[in-house]
């Protein structure tokens, strides 16, 4: 008897919870956006951890990666709140890209980081210039002799791949 009462109670509870649960879940896109927002806030959360806690988490990684994280974190923390917000928006856009395109961007960035510091500075400056040019003028500029004389074949390839990424329609 007790068992039947218990079972009935459980079933009633389970079925009555279903509509409420559906309301809570909401659309998939909403949840995905919330996850992305949460992810973009990871750095903020990590940087607010006590130093000893950060160290404990970083201990899992090899020394060179720890150093790289620390450098990236320091650079991020040097940004003003407005710059952080702007970067956060960029990251949200980036998250909308297809995974393959995201991966291409990372590869290009790694190739660029493999250059000597002096060339990296010149490349960064060129990236800003290319970004601000409209699509047709960008292509024209990249065919010019002055451009070709300023960058090696490898550097031109990196810049060309980046320009392709920027030219693709945004999601």
């Amino acid at each position: 008897m007790l068992g039947r009462v218990l079972l009935t109670g459980v079933l009633v509870l389970a079925f009555s919870a279903l509509p409420a649960a559906a309301q809570f879940k909401g659309p998939l896109a909403k949840r995905k956006a919330a996850q992305q927002q949460k992810r973009s806030q990871m750095v903020e959360k990590f940087s607010r951890l006590p130093p000893e806690e950060q160290d404990r988490m970083l201990q899992k990684l090899p020394k060179d990666r720890r150093k790289q994280i620390q450098n990236n974190l320091d650079r991020y923390n040097e940004l003003s709140p407005e710059q952080k917000k702007r970067l956060g928006r960029q990251y949200e856009n980036f998250q909308q890209w297809p995974p393959e395109k995201q991966q291409s961007a990372r590869k290009i960035f790694r190739r660029m980081n493999g250059l000597e510091e002096e060339r990296k500075v010149a490349m960064r400056r060129e990236v800003v210039k290319l970004r601000n040019l409209p699509g047709d003028r960008r292509s024209e500029y990249m065919r010019s002799d002055s451009y070709k004389d300023s960058f090696s074949a490898d550097e031109q390839k990196i810049l060309s791949d980046l320009a392709d990424l920027m030219a693709e329609p945004r999601p």
Partner: peptide, 22 residues
Amino acid sequence: IEQVETLLEDLEMLRELGVAET
């Protein structure tokens, strides 16, 4: 921590290249 690492790298890339700017 790996997720934080990837995220920081992405942010650094976006900061330098601005490829995802709208």
